[in-house]
Design a protein around this nucleic acid. Sequence first.
DNA 1: AACACCGCGTTTTTT
DNA 2: ACGCGGTGTT
Length: 717
Amino acid sequence: MDVSHLLDALNAEQRQAVCGEHGHYLVLAGAGSGKTRVLVHRIAWLLEVDRVSPFAVLAVTFTNKAAGEMRARCEQLLDVPSRGLWVGTFHGIAHRLLRLHFREAGLPENFQIIDSDDQLRLIRRILRDQSVDEGMFPPRQMQWAINHHKENGRRAEDVDPGDNRRDQQTLAVYAEYERQCRRSGLADFAELLLRSHELWLEQPALLAHYQERFRHLLVDEFQDTNTIQYAWLRVLAGDSASVFVVGDDDQSIYGWRGARVEHVQKFQQDFANTHLVRLEQNYRSTSNILTAANALIANNPDRLGKNLWTEETGGDKVKIYAAYNEHDEAEFVIARIQEWLDEGQRADDSAILYRSHAQSRVFEEALLRRDIPYRVYGGLRFYERAEVKDSLGYLRLTVNRDDDAAFERVVNTPTRGIGERTVGMVRHQANADNSSLWQAAQKLITSQTMNGRARNALAGFLSLIDALEHDLVDKDLGDQLQFAIEASGLIEHYEKEPAEKAQTRRENMAELINAGRYFKPGEDQAELPELSAFLAHAALEAGEGQAAQWEDCVQMMTLHSAKGLEFPLVFLAGLEDGVFPHERSLESSDRLQEERRLCYVGITRARQHLYLSFAETRRMHGRDHRRQASRFLSELPMDVVEEIRPRIAVSRPGLGYQQPAPDIGDLGLGDAVSHHRFGVGVVLDCEGMGPSTRIQVHFEDHGAKWLVLSHASLERL
DNA sequence: AACACCGCGTTTTTT
DNA sequence: ACGCGGTGTT
């Protein structure tokens, strides 16, 4: 058989992983070493050479994007049909299992998925109903605690309440939250994993079935697995499946949301006779960039050890720019991008990366001034927008009347005279009966305990939903969405908002209808009614944040969202201690190491040109901060970096880039000053050196002004 | 029910 | 600085 198409493009180590005998594999794959390629080729090898049935293969990733990419690449590479092959996210696959075995899992057939926003609302509601002090127990912390328990496989009743008041309160809320989810047929994200894990433990026959079926489990980005995902994998693997995991401990950047790098080490103990393969040849970056990355990450202890190398020698040095402030930094970056564009290069081959979203603004302003198109990643995603969730809320109720999250959301949106009092009565009744809000509302209407007006309004809402369900029968998905949006009154509701806002709302609702028209259920949802499949899709796959992807524009994103991407020209901005590494990560060594890995991820995004920059002064949260250059800069070897515009007293790497503050005499930021023309003001900022030193003063009567210090004749007050 | 005001938090993000 | 959410006013 000709297997050359599976092996030709691979190096020796990659081949070792792709065509090795069956068994467990731990592939430590450095950045840019062809990790996804290896995974996809392994699948192709199993199917085409080893003649493994596609039904025996399960490939898992973390994001929908990665899953989609893997599926597409498989289909492209494979000659044999891939029907039956399961490729998906942990959550997607858990969801599929629960739909198939909802009875055994103790879920209603039409259970719905709630996103973190719905979850938070539910928790807020519970805190109020139980009159828990939200100051003492912030809802977000409660949410985190509940998810943390679930991610560690713990139900409320499994946890020892102990004698800590705080833990007890948390547990009480957790228990109530579980109760409400059960009664309304709702599952949050963590629930999908926990429930399907329990399903296997409690239904040995079912587990045996899947263990017999899936002889080959493959996992991408293995370093990102959390406790329940790892447990899930172990249970499914049993004693006989072959488990093939690919990951990079140096790119573990999600510890703060439960990912455990330790699983990489643990894997070798838990899965006997694991073949260890290291992919260290990098096909992305020049050697100067790689040398910088290697040197940086070498400062982390406890690594499994890996050194990237490349056949590409030399290349540009890594440029470091010391900016006066964030505006200077942005100007510098944009000027380099302008040069890049002037060379005829593509804008979308360049990326500005930063630690936190707030840093994007200054760059956006600078790009706008120069009319350079850009795209900022992150932000509200399509299916998370209020008008979209409202529209879907109506449809969710037609599918499952007990969906309390949807009920709460749309019962009085648009306003239809069902105020807080009325909804309060419904909640009270539901809690008393342990029923859903819908059932409680029905009961209240028939029992005549409500005054006429509220009762009519509530009854009107219930019949609206009933009628809606009736009217949706036999319509196709797009028409169903359109009908629901029109019947709900949401269009008129949003028309009352300011024109510009109403416009985007309209567009989004139109886009939702459009999404319905083009929706094609995946193979894994073929069993579901179309509407249910669409609702699950909306919850599990929230969609891109911004459109206009196809336009050629400068890419801007956080370092976290840059993982997995690559660009010829990369700017890593805000390299100051306190910004990056983030100040909240400075106290613990573990967190600092994760920040360093994040920096490593950032550096290894660059193919040819890498600029690192920091600002001596940066305005954040309305205050000025004067910070040291990031410690990460001093960890880079001198011979691969080049300082741009080196200035007097720039220290050598190793001592940090300590800069003397611009000399503004005896003035300091925040000082009150008086000016002969502008009157009294406060010093906000300063920049520049020597005679060009400028100072920014916010005057009470004239606003903020930049003044050249030597001409300003300011008087300190 | 719509609107104004006040106080708080503010790293990273996917499902 | 800024936006969001909760509270209070008309």
